[in-house]
């Protein structure tokens, strides 16, 4: 079985982000970039399936600027076998990414695609679902456990009411939740070995994908500053504030 894992280059989760003064987006100058943490979980799950003998190849794909190659290299250092970089400087929306991934999948024919449920930069949470729809394949989203049984996939999903387990046919699309696994860090020898693993490059234009924008960002703002809390004297005060100030009861 071949597993395809899309990996996105995002602002590192430790970075305190700043909005650009002209409110067009987030300032990326001199900001540390890393692999989207949900995608690290996806890579880890694919590697565990390979180590368990249920997969024989893990392919990492990234879409974006040239430096996305570093994100692929990180996946290769963790243990993925080879990489595909679809290079573009354009701003991409989830539907573009899903269409590009569909074209990659038409070429590669992986039985399983594992994506992060969302990227921590735009928090869209759309690409996996759109990809499943475009391919007409079953999807198991927000996975906290995966089990391959008799050629079908049991996916335990984290939903608001608790855990839901579904069985889906293969080939399938899975998106990872936070508790699926704890990803490994690449060892230094594996980082060095990963330099020799192949990465092929492509562009959306060569693949015939239209990446003209469908959405426009009007404004990006900092969230409002949190106000300091107060102490209330009585239960009556609390109820009054919840009803008349917060408007929640």
């Amino acid at each position: 079985m071949k597993i395809l894992v899309p990996v996105k280059r995002v602002v590192d989760y430790n970075v305190k982000i700043r909005v650009k003064a002209d409110q067009t987006g987030v300032d990326l100058n001199n900001v540390k970039m890393s692999m989207n943490p949900f995608d690290e979980i996806a890579v880890e799950e694919a590697l565990r399936m390979k180590e368990a003998g249920s997969a024989d190849e893990v392919v990492a794909v990234s879409i974006g600027v040239q430096q996305c190659q570093e994100t692929i290299r990180t996946a290769l250092a963790m243990g993925a076998d080879r990489g595909i970089l679809v290079k573009t400087d354009a701003e991409l929306e989830p539907l573009h990414v899903a269409k590009i991934l569909k074209a990659v999948i038409d070429e590669e024919n992986p039985e399983l695609v594992i994506l992060g449920k969302q990227a921590i930069d735009d928090d869209c949470n759309q690409t996996g679902q759109m990809l499943a729809a475009l391919l007409g394949r079953p999807q198991g989203t927000f996975a906290s456990k995966l089990e391959l049984v008799d050629g079908k996939l049991n996916v335990t999903r984290e939903v608001d009411a608790g855990l839901q387990t579904i069985t889906i046919d293969m080939p399938a699309i899975v998106t990872t939740d936070l508790r699926l696994n704890e990803p490994r860090y690449a060892s230094l020898p594996n980082i060095m070995k990963a330099k020799k693993k192949p990465i092929i490059e492509n562009t959306p234009e060569d693949m015939g994908i239209d990446i003209a924008p469908r959405l426009s960002v009007l404004k990006v703002e900092e969230p409002p500053k949190r106000e300091a809390g107060i102490k209330v004297e009585t239960v009556g005060d609390l109820v009054d504030k919840l009803r008349n100030e917060a408007g929640v009861i």
Partner: peptide, 14 residues
Amino acid sequence: NETQRQIRDAARAF
């Protein structure tokens, strides 16, 4: 360079 940064990042994560 890229490899040196990757090694730094791996050491930092560890």
